[in-house]
Design a protein around this nucleic acid. Structure first.
Lengths: 157, 157
DNA sequence: CATTATTTTGCATGAATATACAAGCAAGAA
DNA sequence: TTCTTGCTTGTATATTCATGCAAAATAATG
């Protein structure tokens, strides 16, 4: 069944974009998207997606995707941040200096932190310069290779 | 009624320290602590504590406190600042990089300055990263040991 | 094909959780 | 005291969610 897989991703979207607090209303939304199933099936879908039900901080509860799902989605935009900002990367010893377009250092550094590359021990950002410390045992080649994999088409000279 | 308030904090502890996935078992644990109430009351307690039910990543679900409660419940002291803010500590050569929760780098760095650990020559804080320069002759082991003494239960990995 | 295994689903129902309602209790006002 | 108000609770019940089982759909195998 291809059906289930596509339905799962629709359910995921619905949960991400709406404040849903019970399966029946989710069932209705799903119907509007063209999927008619029963509550039993939906219950199984939610379990499969590892959907949780958490407080809205007030007096209600709503469905929520597990953190991993939320994060890996936004990872894309972090990569965009890096692409947009980086001008050049150079090294000296176990330090790297990334030049960015003016004002972009912070967003790029944040993105690098989020991506959590194993080669990077830490970053410190100014306005258009980022100071990168390599983890012990890692080389600039390792980092550039890692960049190549995660963030293709980046200028590394 | 004083009863409820104390019960709520016990419920909180139980949830924090156990993997509980339904109210009946929580009810039993609560009974062992000397509180005998009905499921109805417990349901209200959970709502009041804004407890959520989230996936264990496998095939089950368990109760979980809202993030705020897990992270902070603190007083003011420098050591508390450090505890609250620090995420990880790693080293490269005679530098240390302390990762903190976003926005906490400054308060942690200030706290470290005030604590005046002999191993630390100076600190430089960004938003969520602190660069620590070790005094000559000091090693990361020295600093970690010093942390262990002054600030137990800190993550040093 | 025919046959067997695997997956997905609905139905019916059980399990888990929430709540309307009325009763109990404490503290203050009259 | 007596009355009123605001919490807190248990009971009974409603609501919401999970699941055993058999049937249907799909995939795999000879």
């Amino acid at each position: 069944m291809k059906e289930r897989h596509t339905r799962l991703s629709v359910v995921k979207e619905l949960i991400k974009n709406n404040r849903i607090d019970n399966q029946d209303t989710l069932l209705e939304l799903l119907a509007k998207e063209g999927f008619t199933v029963t509550q039993a099936t939906l219950s199984r879908d939610l379990k499969m997606l590892k959907v949780g039900k958490i407080s809205d901080g007030w007096s209600g509860y709503y469905y929520s995707l597990p953190e991993n799902d939320l994060i890996s989605e936004s990872e894309k935009s972090y990569i965009q941040d890096v692409r947009r900002g980086v001008v050049s990367i150079e090294f000296s010893g176990n330090f790297g200096v990334i030049k960015t377009r003016s004002g972009h250092a912070n967003s790029v550094a944040l993105a690098l932190d989020v991506l959590a590359l194993p080669e990077i021990l830490g970053t410190l950002a100014g306005d258009d310069t980022i100071f990168v410390i390599l983890r012990e045992g890692m080389t600039k080649e390792d980092l550039l290779e890692s960049f190549k994999v995660r963030i293709p088409e980046i200028e590394t000279q």
